[in-house]
Simulated assay, not measured.
Amino acid sequence: MKPAASIILFTTIAGVAQGLAVALAVATLLGVAPAAGLASAILWVATGLLLVALAASFFHLGHPLRAWRAALMWRTSWMSREVIVLPVFICLTGAWAVLASNGAAARPVLAWLTIAFAFLLWYCTAMIYACIRFIQEWAHPLTIVNYMLLGLSSGLVATCALAVLAGETRFAVGVVPWAIAFTAAAWITRGLALRRNARLKPKSTTQSATGIQAQRVVQKSMGMTGGSFNTREFFHGATASVVRNTKRIFLVFTFALPIVVLAIGIAANAPAVCLLAFPLQFAGLLAERWFFFAQARHPQNLYYQVVS
């Protein structure tokens, strides 16, 4: 599949924002919430990121002014459900940010609603891809698990960075073990997904796609299919070497480096070092999301083969 930059940015940025909001909500429920200033900053950053993600999502639409119509198919479409849940979550996070800025104490019900809508948004976003049964790389529960764990991991790492910037080193130190734990958990489940996908065998064959029942079918020319919608939208155009290297990059930057940096920051009693973890991980997340789309093999490519 061809990775769309707008979707990569939307899912990555929104995931960080959801993780930030969930981290604060859980801390609030556990009675270990940070100072009002940091709590307000976390909520405003989360709201801002959600708005940026929403804006990014419009760039892949052919007719952005008709975007509101996407919500009309909520009975059958996970994208429609996502379109409904996202604005609700933005309003919820924004309202909490306003209350926190005015010094109002967060009520448990607000924290629970934030957690519920964050996970509902992750589920809707992941199901857009997990429900597509003919793309085997996506059609698995691990797709949903990975969207949630990557969001929680990035949100916790971002929370550490914001806490350090705000001078709340004690809160940052308390969050680091959770950030490491969820990053490690995300690493494990993403690794399981990669292992599963590497063993997949296409259910269709070149013979069934083309209707030619010869023992060996090889594409010699794109012919009249060259430059069509199918060849533009379902081929990422990168070489196999680029795809392999992207996988190595995102495994290192999304998981290994953030864990090492956070561990060094705590072991050396230097919380400022933890600031490096978020930009490293975010770069890795962009590569991970590109790979997520590029790895997906649409069955139509058995017919069109490769763009020559």
Rank of each mutant, 00 (worst) to 15 (best):
I8S: 02
T11C: 00
A14S: 15
A14K: 01
V16W: 08
A17M: 09
A23N: 06
A25T: 02
L30M: 15
A33G: 04
A33I: 12
A35H: 08
A35M: 09
A36E: 12
L38D: 00
L38V: 05
S40P: 02
A41Q: 14
I42S: 02
I42F: 11
L43P: 04
W44I: 08
T47C: 14
T47W: 06
L51G: 01
V52N: 05
L54D: 06
A55Q: 05
A56M: 12
G62N: 09
R69M: 13
R69A: 11
M73R: 15
R75Y: 10
M79K: 02
R81S: 08
E82I: 07
V83Q: 05
I84M: 07
P87D: 11
F89C: 04
I90K: 03
T93G: 05
W96Y: 11
V98S: 07
S101K: 11
N102T: 14
G103H: 04
G103W: 06
R107N: 06
P108H: 08
W112A: 13
L113G: 11
F117I: 04
A118F: 02
L120I: 01
L121H: 12
W122N: 13
W122D: 06
C124W: 09
I128H: 04
Y129S: 08
I132R: 10
R133W: 05
E137V: 02
W138Y: 07
A139E: 06
A139M: 01
L142Q: 03
S153L: 03
V157K: 01
L162G: 00
L162F: 05
A163E: 05
G167R: 13
E168V: 03
T169G: 04
T169R: 06
R170D: 15
G174Q: 07
V176F: 05
A179D: 05
I180M: 11
A181W: 06
T183V: 02
T183G: 03
T183S: 12
A185E: 08
A185H: 07
I188M: 09
G191Y: 08
L194A: 13
R195D: 14
A198T: 01
L200K: 04
K201H: 07
P202I: 10
K203H: 10
S204F: 15
T205G: 12
T206F: 04
T210S: 15
G211I: 01
A214P: 02
Q215L: 12
R216L: 14
V217E: 07
V218H: 01
V218W: 00
K220R: 14
G223D: 12
M224S: 11
G226M: 11
G226T: 00
G227N: 10
G227Q: 07
T231W: 00
R232A: 09
H236K: 05
G237E: 08
A238V: 11
T239E: 11
A240W: 01
K247M: 11
I249W: 14
L251F: 04
V252W: 03
F253S: 04
L262H: 06
A268D: 12
N269L: 06
L275G: 06
L276K: 11
A283L: 15
A283Q: 08
G284E: 14
E288A: 15
W290H: 13
F291W: 14
Q295L: 12
R297L: 12
R297C: 03
R297M: 13
H298K: 14
Q305V: 15
S308N: 14
